[in-house]
Write a protein that binds this DNA or RNA. Structure first.
Lengths: 340, 340
DNA sequence: CTGAAAGCGCTAACAA
DNA sequence: TTGTTAGCGCTTTCAG
């Protein structure tokens, strides 16, 4: 268990001082080519690994940023993290990952843990349980960048990166209308997080703009899952007044809806179905699923960009900006009926 | 930009010394209840956040562990990371994530970066480009736990957690044979990483054990992707001697194979298809795909367990163990032909 | 161009 | 039970 080599070892080996070594290592202009090369060389020979911890302690900057997501197992979050890490690693930033598992308690712990680890900032998407922002307050108080994405609270004055969920609801509905569907149901859920109410508003607005009636019993509030999709369809198709298309709350719900529709002989696109998220399976199921692309990768990139900007400007909260990404329709078979 | 509060501030406020504060904060037995409470209280009032960086520097232990994977965007790796992070966070460990993007150069950089960040250990799965282990050597040299999982190099003397890939190839093939298929083709790839050759051996052994002939032209070496799956099937079905079932290198390849088979009217399970990985979509496509479960979550858990064990025992490399997980067949429609 | 020395925030050995 | 102090490895100001 030999001791690790430090700049002191390099200094001793060359009969110079640590300050010179430090300067050489950090490429200061005021250093002679000769000493610099000598330092670099002995650093290599001595198998020197810089201790960023010490640097971080000294400088008050770790170059580590904390990321809190409900779970990396959801393809959306995995994609965000993927592009986030990718975009930041070249700038010298590392990422500490913390999963909240949709639990507020864990999210609170996460913020605390990351702060204790002295991260330079936090990028987070709120858990479904989260109904307050007190735990995030401390990040702001420490004047460290905090960016919320996708599942955000905009009344809390931190920068956010989100999808335009009103528009998402709108274009999903409009897409169905464009394809000739006229009696459009919505499988949704109620939640603190504004996403779902925004989408609902978008759905309603699209109907209105097309002079279609908003039928209350076509709006089903339930969970979001394959099972809920099946259940929702069951409920809808038992009515005397049946819809001819369905906007599902997410792709899993849409999948459940499709399965149920196939069972009862109303295989999409006979009844149109559109989802949200563009999950991995959406392109591969039969009929493959039209859906709303949430641009996860862009979201990661935007978060990275915003973080870098906040770090650069002296005070991260000098100007708090909200980036809103534009959702797009992915047109596939499940909405492919063409007759107006 | 007020200064952060440190244990010195707490000490000053209570007219005691930092060592007492430190002891109180760390719950030393030799501290009086009174002072301890006082410390805890003022810590709260002063809004104290411990600086783990300083602790880490002092103790030479960060409680951070580095994780290197090709990408979090693959569901397998996402699952491993999910259970890894989940299993380790309660033990006080955080995870720094580093994606190699299947690039050796990035993987090398990753090891370096993580070592500089003074991680307590590294858990990694090798990139497809990786053909040497020099860059990992340094981790071992520093006597820090290094665990390789899934894509490993067993001749390199570090602990590993893997799936029994020979068995995976074997049971996939045996499954098809059990279902009555007799002319079984294999869509695979060649690679440094032993996984694929192991599976090939398993495939061959299963055929042998069942007195089925190994037909060279039934073994197609290509890439692994939807496109490669289509291509492979095209190639196979153009032969005069056609297979009646296909073991595909992964689920994507299997998916491509299925799509192509449907197109040419040989919809599985007419021709059987089995994949590897149990990707998210596998259960949802039509026909849904039989596949080999790689037990990603268990793999993460095993890595976590192994890491903890290595940390505990004085020298992490005292006993180098290799955990091998048992693959299991997920029996779905794509192999559902029953006639012997 | 280089050196000396303080200090980032914490822990722990030693003393009291 | 508490205090004193050195030091983890590094950067940077001030001198030279």
């Amino acid at each position: 268990m030999k001791k690790k080599t430090t700049i002191y070892d390099i200094a001793k080996a060359l009969n110079i001082t640590v300050s010179t070594v430090s300067r050489a290592l950090n490429d200061f202009p005021t250093i002679s080519k000769a000493t610099k090369n000598a330092v670099l060389e002995t650093a290599k020979t001595l198998n020197y690994t810089p201790n960023k911890l010490a640097t971080a302690l000294k400088l008050g900057k770790t170059n580590i940023i904390g990321v809190i997501v409900p779970t990396v197992q959801a393809s959306f979050f995995a994609s965000v993290i993927n592009s986030l890490e990718d975009g930041l690693k070249d700038k010298g930033y590392r990422i500490i990952l913390y999963q909240s598992n949709e639990s507020l308690a864990k999210e609170i712990n996460g913020v605390k843990a990351l702060l204790e680890a002295q991260v330079d900032g936090i990028i987070a998407s709120m858990s479904l349980e989260t109904n307050e922002t007190n735990h995030f307050e401390e990040v702001v108080k420490q004047n460290k960048p905090l960016i919320l994405f996708d599942r955000v609270n905009k009344s809390f004055g931190v920068p956010t990166v989100t999808l335009d969920d009103f528009m998402a609801g709108y274009i999903a509905t409009q897409h169905l209308i464009d394809k000739g569907y006229k009696k459009i149901a919505l499988l949704t859920t109620v939640h603190q997080i504004k996403i779902f109410s925004d989408r609902l508003q978008g759905y309603k607005k699209a109907l209105l703009d097309n002079n279609l009636e908003i039928i209350d019993e076509f709006i089903i509030y339930g969970g979001l899952s394959i099972k809920d999709g099946r259940f929702g369809v069951g409920k809808l198709m038992r009515k005397k007044n049946k819809p001819d298309a369905i906007v599902a709350g997410d792709d899993f719900t849409a999948l459940g809806a499709i399965k149920k529709l196939i069972e009862i002989g109303e295989t999409p696109p006979k009844i149109g179905v559109i989802g949200f998220s563009n999950e991995g399976f959406s392109a591969y199921i039969t009929p493959n699923l039209s859906t709303i692309d949430q641009h996860a990768n862009e979201m990661g990139k935007e978060c990275a960009k915003m973080f870098l900007k906040m770090i650069q400007q002296g005070n991260p909260y000098d100007e708090v900006s909200h980036t809103v990404l534009t959702p797009t329709v992915i047109d596939r078979e499940s909405t492919g009926r063409i007759y107006k």
